[in-house]
């Protein structure tokens, strides 16, 4: 799949932002006044920048409000509805904290649930697609959830959760790559099934339907981004795992911040591969072994 920068930024930044808000909603930590302003501001900022980035790849962003209507059937619509609901509830909770007006503990818990559901809905946009076997698996929401947990814990300054969450996310990612690499073949999609099950037997693409490029090739048979996949996997995992240094480093805010930036860079690289390495079944029609 085409690794569009807007979508990579969206899933990474909103994942981190909602991850942080999950902890703030639970009161971990529970700052008031200016510290609360900066904590919640960072969470809202990341989530909002991510959501705004996601509108950049739309053909008609001016119609984006229509995307809130189909929550009964569409994960993309659910994601939008949940994200706005989470931001509104957490916003009300944050107002109480920043101005010291009220302490709405239960509202924070509710916000935490909404933030977690938002991350889940984001992952399901991809996990629902049977056409991309690598994504169409329970491991996709687990992976997104673990990165939100680890990154959010890190930004929230929660030492134990940050270390455990990041370790779990990184280990699960390594396993996930192993499973994902063979899933397309395991699902049994081949050129023979694509052209009518077995009746013609194995087929070999003789002539493509068009001599130039097209939307399908650019969007779903994008293979350029895979060239350095094994190197990028190493780079992504190494950067994403840097918060594990907290085992030895002193837990000072500046160190948390620095490690958070390195971790975020690693997740961006891993998210690039999430798209670039995803094989779409339509590539079978073009005679490309996905």
């Amino acid at each position: 799949m085409h690794p569009a920068p807007s979508i990579i930024a969206f899933t990474t930044l909103s994942g981190l932002g909602f991850g942080l808000l999950v902890f703030l909603g639970l009161g971990l930590p529970s700052p008031t006044g200016w510290p609360a302003f900066f904590h919640f501001g960072l969470g809202f900022g990341l989530a909002a920048v991510g959501l705004t980035a996601s509108t950049l790849h739309l053909g008609h962003p001016e119609r984006a409000l229509k995307a809130f209507t189909q929550w009964r059937s569409s994960w993309l619509s659910r994601e939008g509805v949940l994200a706005v609901a989470a931001l509104v509830v957490m916003g009300l909770f944050a107002l109480g904290r920043v101005f010291g007006l009220y302490d709405a503990t239960e509202l924070g818990w509710f916000g935490t649930v909404l933030c977690a559901l938002t991350v889940y809905a984001t992952s399901m946009i991809y996990a629902q697609l049977k056409t991309v076997p690598r994504w169409n698996h329970w491991s996709t929401p687990v992976q997104f959830g673990l990165f939100a947990l680890g990154g959010g814990g890190l930004l929230a300054g929660q030492l134990g959760v940050a270390i455990l969450g990041v370790a779990a996310a990184v280990i699960f990612q390594i396993l996930n790559w192993q499973w994902g690499d063979s899933r397309f073949a395991e699902r049994g999609h081949t050129g023979a099934t694509a052209t009518g099950r077995g009746a013609m037997g194995q087929v070999r693409a003789f002539e493509p339907p068009h001599t130039g490029n097209n939307y399908l090739l650019k969007e779903m048979v994008h293979q350029v981004g895979r060239r350095h996949a094994s190197k990028l996997r190493m780079i992504g995992i190494t950067l994403a795992a840097t918060p594990l240094l907290l085992v030895v480093l002193p837990p000072m805010p500046v160190i948390f911040g620095l490690l958070a930036i390195l971790h975020c860079a690693g997740v961006l690289v891993i998210r690039w591969l999430f798209f670039a390495q995803a094989e779409h079944v339509v590539s079978l029609y073009y005679g490309r072994a996905a």
Partner: peptide, 26 residues
């Protein structure tokens, strides 16, 4: 007139039957 051009339907189609128009973006 309701299409926001997100492209998710084209991703969901196994057959490559949907293409986002390069000019109209629907």
């Amino acid at each position: 007139s309701d299409c926001i051009g997100c492209g998710l339907c084209a991703w969901a189609c196994p057959y490559g039957a949907r293409e986002l128009d390069g000019v109209e973006k629907v």
